[in-house]
């Protein structure tokens, strides 16, 4: 497994390798970051607010004199874990509906597709704002809201993939054999669409990171005392006029995560095509 990944990464273009490095870095930061963080996340450690680089505060301090490095490492955990879970949930729900629609066909497919077409006609940020206004924004709700927002997009891709497979001989044969819909979906269809599906999950992850940090930036996402990377940008916004590190570091953290994931997915898709 590890050797396969290593050889895959080696044959990638440079941009893909950079993307791979960034994604691995942020995954490690999300898992181990809080363990290696030099200070506790809420501790007021310095009298100086918006301090610059120093030996004791490698990335400066924030608007309350807290250590930026420690807060970014904690924030990365919120951002990465919520977005990862939400991306999986979105793909699970979207693909389940897609399998149902493609196996049943007929009016079941009509109905589900029409509903998804309606949802996809609502811009994702607008949809998420309406959901947050109606239900609120606890961590669990944010996970579900960001997932639901990207279900229709995944459904479209998964339905197109599944529809092509359903028409193929081996699925027809299994059907004639009398296999049930669960067998058809999980044994015959799903294994043959897993790669494009994983690429789509990667893209949903990027979208969800951007949506989640966007909501937090607006003050409508992760609420204090919790803080994801978007919240960190928001709470330090007063430092913008002096160009504080406390606002630039979390913003760049988000960008390196999403840009890295995008470069990696691009390289993987191009590699898969040739």
């Amino acid at each position: 497994m590890i050797s396969r990944i290593a050889s895959g990464v080696r044959t990638m273009p440079l941009s893909g390798q950079i993307g791979f490095g960034l994604v691995v870095f942020w995954l490690l930061a999300a898992v181990f970051g809080p363990v290696v963080a030099p200070y506790s996340v809420g501790a007021f450690v310095d009298d100086e607010v918006f301090a610059g680089l120093s030996a004791s505060f490698p990335l400066g301090t924030d608007y309350l004199g807290r250590d930026v490095l420690s807060r970014v490492l904690w924030g990365a955990r919120y951002t990465v874990f919520i977005a990862l879970a939400a991306a999986m949930l979105a793909v699970f729900i979207g693909t389940s509906f897609a399998l149902l629609a493609s196996l049943r066909g007929g009016w079941t497919d009509e109905l589900i597709s029409r509903a998804m077409d309606t949802l996809i006609s609502i811009p994702s940020k607008i949809f998420a704002l309406v959901l947050v206004a109606a239900f609120g924004s606890s961590l669990g709700l944010l996970l579900v809201i960001t997932a639901i927002t990207y279900v229709p997009g995944n459904f479209r891709i998964a339905r197109a993939l599944a529809m092509n497979l359903v028409a193929l001989d081996f699925v027809q044969v299994a059907r004639a054999r009398g296999e049930g819909p669960v067998h058809l979906a999980t044994r015959e269809i799903l294994p043959n669409m897993i790669h494009p599906l994983l690429a789509d999950m990667g893209l949903r992850f990027v979208f969800i990171v951007l949506l989640l940090s966007g909501l937090s930036f607006l003050g409508l996402g992760v609420q204090p005392p919790h803080a994801d990377l978007g919240s960190l940008v928001r709470e330090n916004l007063t430092g913008l006029t002096e160009g504080a590190l406390a606002i630039i570091v979390p913003a760049i953290a988000i960008a390196t995560l999403t840009v890295g994931a995008n470069l990696l997915i691009d390289a993987l898709q191009k590699g898969g095509r040739s």
Partner: peptide, 21 residues
Amino acid sequence: LSLVAMPEFLIATLFVLAFSV
């Protein structure tokens, strides 16, 4: 590809830093 994945507030922040700060 990088710009597509860039959060809007980073782009706006960088413009503010460059042109007004």
